[in-house]
Design a protein around this nucleic acid. Sequence first.
DNA 1: ACAACATACAACCGAATGGTTGTATATTGG
DNA 2: CCAATATACAACCATTCGGTTGTATGTTGT
Lengths: 111, 111
Amino acid sequence: MTASSEDRADAFFHALADRTRRDILRRVLAGEHSVSALAAKYDMSFAAVQKHVAILERAGLLTKRRQGREQLASGDVEAVRTVASMLSELEEVWRGRIDRIDALLNETEEH
Amino acid sequence: MTASSEDRADAFFHALADRTRRDILRRVLAGEHSVSALAAKYDMSFAAVQKHVAILERAGLLTKRRQGREQLASGDVEAVRTVASMLSELEEVWRGRIDRIDALLNETEEH
DNA sequence: ACAACATACAACCGAATGGTTGTATATTGG
DNA sequence: CCAATATACAACCATTCGGTTGTATGTTGT
């Protein structure tokens, strides 16, 4: 069974709801970084950063490839675009509301 | 003191990281709904829904106006666009990486 | 071979989350 | 006026979250 769209949205938004994870995502979108290179940037334990990376990875926002003893993390811009498209859908819901209001106004005018 | 951009991002993404709240946001983007009208849609207590609405409100994703004894909630599409623009910034970070890679490739070609 | 390094993960802890029930306060319709 | 309705909020509870330390495993350079 594959994760529902809502499950994916949960994972995406939860992953993005932490500033350390957003910062990690920025870095790995800008270029590959090993987990320890990332960990060096933050005032917290290696394990804490490794967990943040794992959460971003499970959400699909980054991927890792092994190079020797390092895991190089790289941001997935397609996943970022998927999140953006979820927001576009919300905006379309809103546009539908405006259209309905306009239709109602026009109808009233015609009478 | 005004909330930092990161504080706002925390509030936005946290508010969006729950499927009930995303569903409420869809409804109130489509049109005004009282808190009790919203509560009737979900299999949970009124208080639980009221808290979800409060979280969306604190994040700025919806506003309320009082009409008699009801509070009518309405989605704020501008806030949704603000979140979308935060994702655009991430995408730009990624684009910068691609540009740098291209520059590097061109430089190598010239030699 | 082996010491150092890079990663993963389990166990634990305090704080925050998402739900509950109960209570207080406005507002309204009859 | 007063019963019903709509909302807000406090107190509580189980679970999740974000951090910690400790341990195990794999990889590398000398």
